[in-house]
């Protein structure tokens, strides 16, 4: 029966992973940019939630909106001002550019906030949910539900709104979209902004689960990447499936082999998948 508990842990983790990854996947799929900044964006979102809680007593679930808004502005500005200038360049160039930007932003955060771990300890935590032998901390469940809601909201936005359709059009064929009157440069900026927004929102949710520090940024980036490889690129359902799959695999891996091997297990899974199915388990071809 312990397996139900492990599975539940995995699902909670997976919901958060999906939320971390979906913005990364969107940017990769639509812009063909690997956004190395993504992990730092997540951490920045977590800091917004931490400061909002520590100084103003704002609950991190409310800060999701604040963190998302702040990160959207940053993301939009970075794409419009910098990345758009080299968006047509080869993979190496855009990858290197976001890497350079990440060094700057992450270093700035390290100087401003130090490397010390911080955590949001809620004064009034939600009660735990107990179903038979399964024990679920209320706040984590709430964070997972919010993560899925946000991801679902993004999905609806892409499907139903005018901006969303324009983003999908750019993803499918940049030149055709431009010919149809889609302002591609602006859509690029909005897409990158949304990617950052999702990272910031995920960071705010994570602030009650994970310790916060700039040095954790690469971990989140790695998770986002693995989820994308599992689920396939640029699709919201892919990121959901990938996130849940990674969460469950990590939970069981930690249970069977010990938590210190969780990282090795995810990397092993990643290498295996890259070798067998570089298109993701949903089978969608990556956009090269």
């Amino acid at each position: 029966m312990i397996y139900f508990q492990v599975l539940a842990n995995g699902l909670i983790l997976g919901g958060l992973y999906a939320c971390i990854a979906v913005g990364f996947s969107l940017v990769w799929g639509v812009l063909n940019v690997i956004n190395i900044l993504h992990g730092t964006f997540v951490v920045l979102g977590a800091y917004v939630a931490w400061f909002a809680y520590a100084y103003f007593g704002i609950h991190p679930f409310v800060s999701v909106v604040i963190a998302g808004a702040i990160l959207y502005v940053i993301g939009h500005a970075i794409q419009a001002g910098l990345i758009n200038r080299v968006i047509a360049a080869p993979v190496l160039i855009t990858l290197t550019l976001t890497f350079g930007l990440d060094l700057m932003l992450n270093n700035a955060m390290l100087v401003a906030f130090t490397a010390d771990y911080r955590q949001v300890n809620l004064a009034n935590p939600l009660p735990a949910i107990i179903i038979g032998p399964v024990f679920l901390p209320g706040d984590r469940v709430a964070a997972m539900v919010l993560a899925f809601l946000l991801t679902g909201l993004l999905w609806r936005t892409l499907r139903d709104s005018k901006i969303g359709r324009a983003i999908v059009a750019v993803r499918m064929d940049r030149e055709a979209a431009a010919l149809m009157g889609v302002p591609v440069a602006r859509i690029n900026a909005i897409t990158f902004g949304i990617g950052a927004l999702m990272a910031g929102a995920a960071g705010a949710l994570l602030s009650i689960v994970y310790p916060i520090s700039p040095i954790n940024a690469p971990i989140f980036l790695g998770k986002a990447f693995i989820v994308c490889v599992i689920g396939g690129l640029g699709s919201v359902p892919g990121a959901m499936v990938g996130g849940i799959a990674l969460g469950v695999v990590e939970a069981f891996g930690a249970f069977w082999f010990g938590p210190e091997h969780a990282l090795t297990i995810s990397f092993g899974l990643l290498l295996l998948l890259l070798f067998v199915r570089p298109g993701g388990i949903l089978g969608k071809k990556g956009y090269e």
């Binding site: 200038r85 080299v86 290197t96 890497f99 350079g100 060094l103 700057m104 992450n106 270093n107």
Partner: peptide
């Protein structure tokens, strides 16, 4: 010393944007 990573970042960004 404390911002040497950021300094490398600045070089990289300037390089990509102005001297590809």
């Amino acid at each position: 010393l404390t911002v040497h990573a950021a300094a490398l970042g600045v070089i990289i960004v300037a390089l990509v944007l102005f001297l590809p």
